[in-house]
Structure formats: C-alpha cells, structure tokens
Design a protein around this nucleic acid. Sequence first.
DNA 1: TACTCATATTAATATATGTTCATATATTAA
DNA 2: TTAATATATGAACATATATTAATATGAGTA
Lengths: 128, 128
Amino acid sequence: MSETTQHSPAREAIETCAVKGIHHNLIRAVRQAMPDPVRLYALADLFKLFGDGTRIGILWALSESEMCVCDLCALLRMKQPAVSHQLKNLKQARVIKARREGKVIYYALDDEHIRNLLNLGMEHVLEA
Amino acid sequence: MSETTQHSPAREAIETCAVKGIHHNLIRAVRQAMPDPVRLYALADLFKLFGDGTRIGILWALSESEMCVCDLCALLRMKQPAVSHQLKNLKQARVIKARREGKVIYYALDDEHIRNLLNLGMEHVLEA
DNA sequence: TACTCATATTAATATATGTTCATATATTAA
DNA sequence: TTAATATATGAACATATATTAATATGAGTA
C-alpha cells in the first residue's frame, strides 16, 4: 500500500537534518531496502516487550514450561496483578498464548520464534 | 541435577504472593533452570535497546550498510543530536561499533547476532 | 595558530511505562 | 443461589525514557 515514488530521487533535497547526508546514493539504496515504517514500529514494539525485567522473567520461565499465573507469582515473587498485567501485554502481541483448565489458566510461549529470540539474545549477553 | 526432594513439597510455604503457587515441584525446577538475575536483566537491557522506533531504524539501516552519522540523519530524517544520542546508547551496549575516517565516523553493527535478532524478530512480525 | 565541520554532551521538558491498590469477572463446588 | 478461588481490570502514582535546544568537543585544514 505504499505511495508511488515517481519523483526523481536525485532531486529530493535533504533539509531535515542540519548536517546534510554525504553519501546520497547509499542513502537512497538503504531507504529502498528498509521495511516500511509500520513494520519497523511493529518490530520495535515486539522488542519493547522483551525489554523489561519482569516480562523477560516471565518469558524465560515460560520457555522452560507452561505455567499458571499463581505459579509465576510464586516463582518470580511478584504480586498477582503485576503478573496479570504483563501477561496481558504479552498475549496481545501474540508472544504468549493462554489455555484454560477449570479455574486455572496456563500460559505458554506462542511459538518457537520467541524461544529462539531469547536464546539468541542471551548468546550475545554471555559472550560480552 | 536436581536437589534431593526429600522434604515434602506440600510443606514449603510460598508467602510472597497473595495467591500461593500450585505446582511446587515445577516452580522449584524452573527456578533452578533460570539464568541468574544479573544476566536476565542484561538480556532485558539488550532488548530494550531494540525496542524503540528510532533505534530500530538505525539498526536496520546499519544492517544494510555501515553509515556515517550525517547519512543516518538524512536517511531517517532526524536531527543530528538525536541520532548521536542513540548511537551512544547502542555503542555502550556493544550493539554497534564505530570507525573513524578523517572527520567522519562510520557506524556498523557489532556482530552477526544483531542482524540475526533483527531478522528473527521481523519474521515473527510478518507472520502475525 | 585559528577556523570549520562532524559529532558529542548537557540540561530541560515531555511522554511513556510499570507497579500498586481496590475491585471486577469467571469458574467450580456446595 | 452462595461461597471460594484464580485471574483480570482500572485509576493513580512513581519512575524511566525519549526529545529538544543550546552548547561543547575534537579532528582536520588553511
């Protein structure tokens, strides 16, 4: 759904920055290769969810095993509403999924991507 | 590698949460499998850097090619101090690295982990 | 030396985010 | 239906984070 980019790229003045870009061809090429802003922001939002101590704890725990809310509370020594809030955030973004069994709701990672992201990130942390 | 489970699990009181954990053995096992808090927080901090529209733009741009600050400004249509500020954050965390050539400083992703994280995250975003 | 340009830093304000408390909903059992 | 339990939600507060403008630094060059 992107707008047409008919106007000559070479023409486009770059005035938005005090310092003007040096490598105009490079800038043009990279701009074309970039995902559209909507997707980039969606990606940032995904990572934002991983970027919090509470949620990363929840996610890592769930990467070991599915768990119910009160187990997570006990494991992470957190108040139940705090856990539920973050579970809601994670679920909205399809990072985790829920399964009800009577009164108890079990949460689990939504798919293997999530586990891979966690592991890949930890690799970087550990080798630093 | 689990500790002896001699003492009755039912005995251990979990009082940190209003709601008491149900699956005590699970909680104990997962707690042992969790990375220590310092590493978990380091991991959250890493992801936090990815979780911002400005920085993800910078990172994705750098995943296409190394670039100097003023190119990034032009590409992302941002003010130079804003770009420099985020570059500093990213560099401190060893997510990107800098290389000077005369007056110009070129930035690039620090290693392949970073590119992999970006791609893996985008996969998840795209399939949603 | 002094001058210029690319980049860095500081301090201020604005905005976003997480946590808590109180309360609401949903399910099961009696 | 009522009581009990597991989980969810809403609003208020505190804190963290991003953004901006003004200014500083520091490498190259005349």
